[in-house]
Design a protein around this nucleic acid. Structure first.
Length: 861
RNA sequence: GCCGGGAUGGCGGAAUUGGCAGACGCGUUGGACUUAGGAUCCAAUGCCCAAAAGGCGUGCAGGUUCAAAUCCUGUUCCCGGCACCA
């Protein structure tokens, strides 16, 4: 085993005496200060011949302090932004604050600090943290959503939405979180619980609220998911599920014996109208309006239905609605199947949901699992109407196991439709229903309109007025913004805090000049984040939300080039944003159909196998990490520990490892960047001694590996590993130098190139240190705009390669050959190899597999 | 139940197209330097075997192939999403 002899004067001792240690704090505060002075450094260029690149990280809520998840998110975006700058792009890399919302109100109540003050203080603190971490944001475009210069445009948009009929007011059953004391959108309810309060069940309340008709775009939102190959499949699937498109048929059953034919219709939605001749009952949701009528004079039935409602609620509490036992009540009435005039019993059941389809179903026990279970329990008739088509005649048809639910079959006992395949029957029967006026083919969605009214203070006031004479009237554009008043008592509960501010509530109707009452609800904060990234393109504009040309330049045809954020917004923020973009496109404000071309969801950070939480005491604070190891190390560790899309299990020792590595780089440059070297501008000599050639080769291989990771998979863990390998090789080459030899082991021109490239390759990951190295090397000009190094395939090429030799697939030996060695040459050497010969004793070579440049495998028996 | 993702040393992970399993880092062990070392530098480190030779080894069981972490079939477990969706 070859190894280096211990040197008489080792690098170790020399370093201890003459070299400074890597002092991240000193280096980072120096560069931080310089960057603060040069605010234009990271600014996107107003006009440019360069290609544009818009890279964006999801803006944070100003909770008071960054957490490690933020650092990881921003470290990814910052690395990419810096890489793109160095590759000659005009980069837009902005940051802002999603600063309306409940926590500010809760904190205000707890600490007796007004929400605005609390929020802006947090913004300042977190901005300082971001600067300390060295993220390269264009702060001239900062957006703070709770300030009137931003939220006035929420109001402006709301009026546009209202004018187009996309914003509307209706009374309906809505989700109410008692802890938030406000209404929630469907998207903010998870398993029947509040998204912010996992322990709190959402209640249903009948309220009049403002909604946005996101369902206008249901189909487009679904269809365009196929045009987003740059999005994670997971997110697209989640949105598809959420939109929940379902093709089926509406069929009207008549209530038998109803006095008034107009109100006797029971609309049923089914995806399997082909099975309708097998319907042996109709089931209503307990909240169905018809149930209310039927129970009006029937206290017993009313009590039974109430029981069903209670069971549904219970199931939601458990959070596993699929496990609840099915219960039903026979109303004693009948519904008439319009296809055959048959009377079937009308039931109310606890497994029918009022908020999907029509809240009523036809029950076909023979061909639906749930209906089958229900029918067995209540001894309802099971009638087979589909005969399965099975390839194997043994298994066919005679006695299929019920329920039989697939589409592979033909209809029986189905009147004129008998003999049709399921697929054909669905089409024919839908057309038949339409022709006879009792139904039609239809599409239902799970997606519901977006309820945006919030009965809270800290949000955008909805710019609407209620006039006794003129009804609902929008605030005229010239009167915007409707300013959110300060000094509002938010500690009282019950209703919107703004409703207790007479100066706010009392207004004048712009139409008739008479008295009007102002809307006192505020907007869901997801309105703020639905379009904020357009505002970055023109943040100072006070005549419009943004200039069309500027937004057009940065969004182009396809939107933000790269958006990076957590998976928790897969549905909420990202579906609202898509909706908003489509609305703005229809208004003619923008040309792009989608806001984001490429989306990246970074993985969560955990520690000790669990999500970081105060109660577990495993929270890692960015401030703490920066103080102990420096910003560069903390950032770089989040990129090195694993690939960005995976879950990251935090390990403090891992950060130490990065700090150690950065120290190695720093010390290498300190002792090898003698000012006298700077006069060397010679090109690297074409022919290098063995050791130097090895370093040159490694250098170019490293450039390739780092560049490839940026271009492709974003596996920065392997990019950083590649740079580490290079540095390890430099240290190995240095070893003998220290032993007193005066000639440098690495020729100065190559040494200078290596050091320059090190600074360039580290710039996206450890910007402070990279800038320090750049300066130490006497380089002029900003590292940020220095061109990314090019790799030369000729220089990266190996002159000699080791070919593994297998016998019957098992590695037996390796032969070292010139890279261009012929197959014959390699085979000759391989068969001469002792180990190979030993493995071939008593065997006959059948054939030799030869993979150029990779390996050879001798097949022998 | 349905739809995703995953399982590789003591740990985080690497292996980009089927071609040397374990790069890089952590940890551990040994050494150098030292008044000292929790600094730094060097080396070793998948498992079995005293060592060599050899064997075994990518959740599990099979299969395809000269060759499988990678492809196929079946299966277990873990994580995430959706869920009486008619």
């Amino acid at each position: 085993m070859p190894h280096n002899e211990p040197a008489s004067v080792s690098p170790a001792s020399r370093e201890a005496q003459t070299e400074e240690r890597y002092d991240a704090q000193r280096i980072e505060s120096k560069w931080s200060a310089l960057w603060q002075q040069d605010s234009a450094l990271y600014a996107a260029e107003a006009s440019s011949s360069k290609p544009k690149y818009y890279v964006l990280e999801m803006l944070p809520y100003p909770s008071g302090a960054l957490h490690m998840g933020h650092v990881r998110n921003y470290a990814i975006g910052d690395a990419l932004a810096r890489y793109m700058w160095m590759n000659g792009y005009n980069v837009l890399h902005p940051m802002g604050w999603d600063s309306f919302g409940l926590p500010a109100e809760n904190a205000a109540i707890q600490n007796n600090t007004p929400p605005r003050e609390w929020t802006l203080r947090n913004v300042a603190a977190m901005k300082a943290q971001m600067k300390r971490l060295g993220f390269a944001y264009d702060w001239s475009r900062e957006v703070t959503t709770c300030l009137p210069d931003y939220y006035r445009w929420n109001q402006w948009f709301f009026i546009k939405l209202f004018e187009k009929g996309v914003a509307y007011r209706k009374k309906s059953r809505v989700n109410w979180c008692p802890k938030c004391a406000t209404v929630l959108a469907n998207e903010q309810v998870v398993n029947g619980r509040c998204w912010r309060h996992e322990d709190t069940l959402v209640e249903q309340r009948e309220l009049e609220q403002w909604f946005l008709r996101i369902t206008n775009y249901s189909d487009e939102l679904l269809r365009d998911l196929d045009r987003l190959p740059g999005w994670p499949e997971k997110v697209r699937t989640m949105q598809r599920n959420w939109i929940g498109r379902s093709e089926g048929t509406l069929v009207d059953f008549k209530l038998d014996g109803a006095p008034d034919p107009a109100t006797s219709s029971i609309a049923v939605f089914t995806t399997r109208v082909d099975t309708i001749f097998g319907a042996t009952s109709v089931q209503l949701a307990p909240q169905h309006p018809l149930v209310a009528r039927l129970t009006q004079h029937n206290d017993l039935l009313r009590a039974q239905v109430d029981q069903l409602i209670a069971e549904q609620r219970k199931a939601r509490e458990v959070g596993d609605i699929g496990e609840i036992e099915k219960h039903g009540v026979n109303t004693g009435r009948y519904a008439v199947n319009p296809y055959n005039g048959e009377k079937v019993p009308l039931w109310v059941a606890n497994y029918i949901l009022m908020d999907y389809g029509t809240g009523a179903i036809m029950s076909v026990p023979a061909h639906d699992d749930r209906d089958f279970e229900f029918a067995k329990k209540y001894k309802l008739e099971v009638r087979l109407v589909i005969l399965p088509t099975v390839d194997d005649p043994e298994e066919t048809a005679v006695d299929p196991p019920l329920p039989f639910t697939t589409m592979q079959g033909t209809l029986v006992n189905s009147g004129p439709f008998g003999g049709m395949t399921c697929e054909a029957a669905i089409k024919a029967m839908s057309e038949y229903a339409e022709a006879h006026g009792f139904g039609k083919a239809t599409v239902t969605y799970r997606l519901k309109d977006w309820g945006i009214s919030r009965q809270r203070y800290w949000g955008t006031p909805i710019p609407m007025l209620y006039c006794e004479k003129d009804g609902i009237v929008a605030v005229p554009e010239k009167d915007l913004p409707v300013i959110l008043p300060e000094n509002v008592d938010i500690t009282l509960t019950g209703g919107s805090p703004l409703s207790r501010v007479p100066e706010f509530v009392n207004a004048t109707c712009p139409r008739c000049g008479g008295p009007a009452r102002r809307e006192t609800d505020t907007m869901d904060t997801f309105v703020d984040s639905s379009w904020y990234f357009y505002r970055y393109t023109d943040a100072g504009n006070d005549g419009a939300p943004f200039d069309r040309e500027k937004a057009g330049y940065w969004f182009g045809e396809r939107g933000i080039d790269q958006y990076i954020g957590g998976i928790e917004h897969a549905i909420l923020h990202l579906i609202y944003s898509r909706f908003w973009t489509k609305f703005m496109r229809d208004m003619g404000l923008i040309k792009n159909d989608e806001p984001v071309e490429r989306l990246f969801s970074q993985g969560m950070i955990i520690k000790g196998g669990a999500k970081m939480s105060k109660s577990l005491g495993n929270v890692v604070s960015p401030d703490d990490m920066v103080e102990r190891y420096g910003a560069d190390s903390a950032r770089m560790y989040t990129l090195f520990a694993t690939s960005p899309d995976r879950e990251l299990d935090w390990l403090d020792e891992g950060v130490e490892g990065i700090e150690r590595f950065l120290g190695r780089v720093y010390r290498f440059v300190v002792r090898n960047s003698h000012p006298s070297h700077r006069q060397w501008h010679d090109p690297v000599p074409p022919i290098l001694a063995n050791g130097a050639r090895a370093i040159q080769r490694k250098l170019h291989q490293t450039i390739k590996r780092v560049s490839d990771d940026f271009q492709g998979r974003w596996h920065f863990n392997t990019s950083i590993a590649a740079v580490m390998e290079l540095v390890n090789e430099l240290y190995a080459a240095e070893g003998p130098v220290a032993a007193g030899s005066s000639a440098p082991a690495i020729p100065v021109p190559l040494l200078r190139e290596v050091q320059r490239v090190l600074a360039l390759l580290l710039a996206p990951f450890a910007p402070h240190l990279a800038h320090e190295l750049w300066e130490m090397l006497g380089e002029k000009g900003s590292l940020l705009r220095a061109p990314w190094p090019k790799y030369d395939p000729t220089l990266a090429r190996e002159e000699e390669i080791e070919i593994p030799v297998q016998v019957n697939g098992k590695l037996r030996s390796r032969v070292l050959v010139p890279a261009d060695a012929s197959r014959e040459n390699i085979e000759q050497r391989a068969f001469a190899d002792e180990k190979v010969r030993a493995a071939l004793v008593g065997k006959k070579v059948v054939k030799v597999i030869f993979v150029i440049g990779k390996l050879m495998n001798i097949v022998a028996r």
